[in-house]
Computed example of a mutant assay.
Amino acid sequence: MNQHLRPEPVPFIDIAAQRRRLGPAIDEAVTRVLTHCQFINGPEVTALEAALAEYSGAKYVVTCASGTDALLMVLMAKGVGRGDAVFCPSFTFCATGEAVALTGAVPVFVDVDEATFNMDVDSLKRGIATARKRGLAPKAVMPVDLFGQSADHDAIAAVAEAEGLFVLDDAAQAFGASYKGRRLGTLGLATATSFFPAKPLGCYGDGGAIFTDDAALAETLRSIRVHGQGSDKYDNVRLGLTGRLDTMQAAILLEKLKIFDDEIAARNLVAERYARGLGNVVSVPRLASGCTSIWAQYTIRLPAGCDRDGFAAALKAQGVPTAIYYPKSMHQQTAYRDFPVADGGLPACERLSDDVISLPMHAYLDEPTQERIIRAVRGALGA
Rank of each mutant, 00 (worst) to 15 (best):
R276Q: 13
F196G: 00
L245E: 08
T193P: 07
A177C: 13
L257T: 09
A251I: 01
D262W: 11
N236A: 10
A250C: 01
K258Y: 01
L269S: 12
A275M: 04
G205C: 04
G208Y: 13
E272Y: 02
L253F: 03
N268V: 00
A198V: 14
K180G: 00
A215C: 02
R273F: 03
L187K: 06
T193K: 05
S194C: 09
R182L: 12
L241R: 15
E272D: 14
L257S: 09
S194E: 10
L257V: 07
D261Y: 08
L184F: 05
L221N: 10
K258M: 01
H227N: 15
F211G: 08
I210G: 05
K256Q: 15
G185R: 04
L241V: 12
P197G: 02
L184S: 03
T212H: 06
T191Q: 06
L201Q: 09
I210K: 08
L221I: 09
A192M: 09
Y204L: 13
K258D: 06
T242G: 11
L184M: 07
T186Y: 06
V270P: 05
L201C: 06
R273C: 01
F195I: 04
V237S: 01
A190H: 03
T220F: 10
T247D: 09
A198N: 14
D235R: 00
G243A: 07
T220V: 15
T247G: 07
S178W: 10
L269N: 11
S223C: 09
K199L: 10
F175K: 05
D206G: 09
R225D: 01
R276Y: 00
F175R: 10
G240Q: 04
L269P: 00
D214C: 12
A215M: 04
Y179C: 02
